[in-house]
Each structure stands twice: as structure tokens, then as C-alpha cells.
Design a protein around this nucleic acid. Structure first.
Lengths: 184, 184
DNA sequence: AACAAATGTCACACATTTGAGAAATATTTC
DNA sequence: GAAATATTTCTCAAATGTGTGACATTTGTT
């Protein structure tokens, strides 16, 4: 993939994330290309949106799966999944919403959904394991912990924009808050 | 204010919240009126957006200030501020973002900003007081706790859409998680 | 039933956005 | 530095969105 194409996709994700109907001119401006160039890479708006979704899908999935497979210790896995989500930034919330939204037809046949299910199941397994080990409050359902997880990620991304703290510091705050929130 | 006007504003907040450039037809559809009716109540798009912002401002502000003034106990104040945010739903995040965003020119002369400052200062005061009382981790800055606060609110709103739990149950989960996250 | 107010239908002018062709210009590659 | 490739500029037509006037229909009130 060319550099320009990547830049356009990154810009599109940024722009569409906060305004799905934003004019393509805005995306082009952000990517520092002309609208004409944008149209040479993408047949039309729909194609661009689809490519963005796919890009989000694959980059988040990759980061999440890497996090899960990086350790056998459930606590470490959870921590790395949090950091992976934070590193994906705005993409993570889109990714998460894509599979949660009501109009999304979820099916295991779809490769994307199958991968999402894998990640989701692993997340559940991690939580249940930590509950057994007495490290996570058994009164909290994995469902709640999952929405909390994504809420903490959003907080961290917001914090990054408004505070003067270093990224590492904020990440640590995030993990500390999270693990204490779900502790027994 | 007529019922129709209110309904249009509510719909506009919902729609614009996730897509600021959405066509007015979408807002009209959501409010179950024709675009013509929408235009009878609002001169143009700008006016509708402005009214939405104002509606968000005043309803969130009111809820927050009520929460603060409902008790003298800092812990109770914090808890009620959380619930107030949750009850405001999607409006809360818009309200919060409105005053955080970079292009927002914040000035104390603006009545809205002055009220926001009041709420923000009260929040800070509450946190510092709780830190003195040993109920909140002194290593966590009020800034971080504030982004966490809004993250928990977002989580709760998401949780409401996907779980079968009652609203009260989710709110309790939210408060439990929150207070434990920031405990010393 | 008569009436007023609110809403809907249709038509229209106008503005913005979209997508693409053709030629000029810039950039990379050999 | 010539050829190949990528990008910009300018142009334009089609599609979509916006705001409004004239009039029909519905709804609620007396």
C-alpha cells in the first residue's frame, strides 16, 4: 500500500470518527492531498468508509490477539489488553462499537466476527480465571467489566489530550484505577 | 415549548451526537416529523445546533448543581454527581466535550463557562476534601479523576444498552467500581 | 359543524458535495 | 535527463442537501 493511501485512511478514520458525514474535502485536507487524489485511491465514499472499518478491524484485532498471546498469566494478559486498547486510540472505540451496535448483524461465519468472538471469549475467560483466583470481584459480571474496560480506555485517550502528564504515567494511572475498580 | 419542538431537539441531540453533519432529514425522521415542520421551528441548521447545545448546557448544569447542593457530605456529593451524569445520558459527554475541546474559547465572562467552572471547581474541591479525609487516593490528580468520572458515565450508558440488568443495578456497579478505583 | 392551529405534501431555487475527465506539473526511478 | 508514475489544477455534470412558498390535510376546541 502506498504512503498516500495509508495517510488518507488514517485521516479518514480520524475525521469520520467524530463526524461520519463530514465532506471528503475535510479528509483530503487532513491527509494533505487534493480531493482528486483521494478519488483516485477510493472509488467513492462508501469504499473509503469500508476500507477504514477494515483497517480498524485488523489493527485492533492484531494488537488484542498479540496481547492475549504474550503471556500465560491472566493478570498480565488483562493489563496488556488494556494497553493495547489504549495504543489503538480512537480506533478501539470504533472497533468496539462496530460489534456492539444494534444494526450490526453478528454472525460467526463472518471472519471479522469470528475473530471478535475469539477476543471476547478470551476476555471472558481471563475475567473468570481472575475471579477464581480471588483477584477480581466475583459480583461483577464479565459484561460489566468489559464496558468498564472500554470506558477506561476512552478516559485514558481523553486524559492524554488535556493533561501534561507523560503517556506512560497516564497508562499506569489507567491500569491502577482499573484493577482496583474490579478488585474483590 | 411545544411537544414537537422538544422532540426535534431530543432527536437532534441524539443524531448530531454521533454525526454532526448528518442531514436534517435524519433528524426529522428520528423525531417523526417532516423536514418542513422542522424548518418551521428552526430557521436553519445553525439555529438547531445552537439550541441543542443550549439545551444540553442547561439540563446538565441543572442536574450537576442540584447534585452538588443536595448534601454537605463530599462523598454523597460525588456519588450524586455520578448519577446525575448517568441520568443525563449522551448529553453529558457532549457537555463535557464542549468545554474540553481545543477550539472552544473558554472565558469566564461567558455565562455557560462560568457555570462550568463552578461545577469543575466544586468537583475539584470534593476530590481534594476526600483526599484529606483519606477516602481518595492522594496520588491521583483531580484531572485524572475527572476524565475517569466521565469514562465511567460513558461505560454505564453503554452497559444500559447491552445488558439485561436493571438501570439501578448498573448504576450501583458504576459507583462501586468508581469509588474503588479512586480509593487510597 | 365551524374554526384555528399544527402538520404534511409538493414544487422550486439555490448551495454544497460528489465523482470523474483532460491536461499541466511535480516527483520518483532507472 | 528521460521515462514512468503520482499529484495537482481546472473543469463540469450529476446527486444530494437546504430553506421556503402555496396549499391540502389533520387535529383539537368550542
Amino acid at each position: 500500500m502506498t504512503d498516500t493511501k495509508k495517510r488518507i485512511i488514517e485521516s479518514a478514520i480520524r475525521i469520520f470518527n467524530e463526524d461520519l458525514s463530514a465532506p471528503l474535502q475535510k479528509v483530503a485536507d487532513n491527509a494533505e492531498v487534493t480531493r482528486r487524489t483521494l478519488h483516485r485511491y477510493f472509488k467513492d465514499r462508501n469504499e473509503l468508509v469500508a476500507v477504514c472499518k477494515q483497517a480498524i478491524e485488523s489493527s485492533c484485532k492484531k494488537a488484542m490477539i498479540t496481547a492475549i498471546q504474550s503471556s500465560n498469566d491472566a493478570l498480565v494478559q488483562l493489563e496488556r489488553m488494556l494497553y493495547a486498547g489504549i495504543d489503538c486510540g480512537a480506533k478501539y472505540s470504533v472497533f468496539y462499537k462496530q460489534h456492539q451496535s444494534k444494526d450490526h448483524k453478528h454472525t460467526h461465519h463472518n471472519k471479522n466476527c469470528a475473530d471478535y468472538d475469539y477476543i471476547y471469549n478470551q476476555f471472558q475467560r481471563i475475567i473468570i480465571e481472575l475471579q477464581k483466583e480471588g483477584k477480581v470481584n466475583p459480583a461483577m459480571s464479565p459484561e460489566w467489566i468489559q464496558v468498564l474496560h472500554s470506558g477506561i480506555i476512552e478516559s485514558t485517550i481523553n486524559a492524554r489530550e488535556i493533561t501534561t502528564k507523560s503517556f506512560e504515567e497516564i497508562k499506569n494511572l489507567a491500569w491502577t484505577s482499573y484493577i482496583k475498580a474490579i478488585a474483590p
